[in-house]
Amino acid sequence: MSPVAVFRLFLGLAIVVAVVFLLVARSTQRVREVDYKAAGQARKVFFFTLTGVLTAFLGITLPRMPYPREGVIPDRVVHVVGKQFAFAISETPIETDAQWEEVTSFAPPVRIPVGSLVEFRVTSFDVNHGFSVYSPQGQLLAQTQAMPGYVNRLRLRLNEPGRYTVLCLEFCGSAHHRMRGVFFVE
């Protein structure tokens, strides 16, 4: 489901909630006794409906978790290291500050074959950063945290060629909004 579709779903549910509250508020214009038995029945229906819907959504969405599955081998591995305030992105491991400087200053952008399954191995040399991949149209496709001392593995299959931007999605200091990286799919 696209984020805009999720927004529409939310908007629809929010309007339903607001209408229910409005109708209940308007009901006070005509005072009446509450039929607690009927209210109890309605509550039961609400309970089972809500629990059922939530369980169904769990069933639908949990298999779509983005975490890497063992046994599936990616076509490419790309190493990413965040550091205030840039992402070093390279097909060779980045293990030192000097290598990070070299990649961010001189290395050409990584190029990934279209349609290949790529695994980004993401870490940080200082604070927490958020490694997020934006499509050539500026849509957020996926993300994972860049955390000091840990490597998060994000797998993506990018079927559209073009320039992909990496923005930082975890607040990391005074130039957080300028922290970025880039790679190409072709």
């Binding site: 489901m1 984020p3 999720v6 779903l9 939310f10 549910l13 929010a14 909630v17 939530l54 959504f57 969405t61 949990l62 779509r64 978790m65 983005p66 958020g130 997020s132 957020l140 496709l141 996926a142 993300q143 999605l169 975890e170």
Partner: peptide, 18 residues
């Protein structure tokens, strides 16, 4: 409602920290 939507892992992938 908005919080429950965002607490869905598959949705959070594209909503987290937006």
């Amino acid at each position: 409602v908005a919080a429950v939507i965002d607490s869905t892992i598959a949705v959070n992938l594209r909503f987290h920290n937006t």
